[in-house]
């Protein structure tokens, strides 16, 4: 969790080479023309948040993909650990009753 790439906890940190003086990594979220949600589209490097938004504009919205950009420094993202995926996610596999598929939907309701 404390590695500089906490958004990518499964990427091993190499300690052999001295760290290069690099711009921090930012995760980019774009809201498209349709829908309200911002979706993660990738990451990039930038010296500060203003340049991160500008770089995101240039790297990820060249083909008119978005109407809004969020950026967050990758180190501020806390991520679940892939090694814990058994206890975290497998228990829900056997709980079909959590899916709302056991109800009869009246015809008047239409498509849901």
């Amino acid at each position: 969790m404390s590695s500089p790439n906490s958004a990518y906890p499964d990427t091993p940190e190499t300690r052999t080479k001295p760290k290069r003086h690099e711009w921090p990594l930012w995760e980019v979220f774009i809201r498209g023309q349709h829908g309200m949600s911002h979706r993660h589209v990738g990451s990039l490097h930038a010296p500060d948040e203003e340049m991160a938004i500008k770089n995101a504009r240039d790297v990820y919205t060249r083909r008119n993909e978005g109407v809004s950009i969020w950026v967050v420094e990758a180190r501020h993202i806390a991520a679940s650990s892939p090694s814990e995926k058994g206890p975290l996610y497998e228990p829900s596999e056997s709980k079909v009753y959590r899916h709302p598929t056991f109800f009869d939907i009246p015809d008047e309701v239409g498509a849901m």
Binding site: H45, K54, D58
Partner: peptide
């Protein structure tokens, strides 16, 4: 850097 490369090309 890659980001500047793309920005300059734009």
């Amino acid at each position: 850097v890659l980001e500047e490369d793309i920005a300059l090309a734009n």
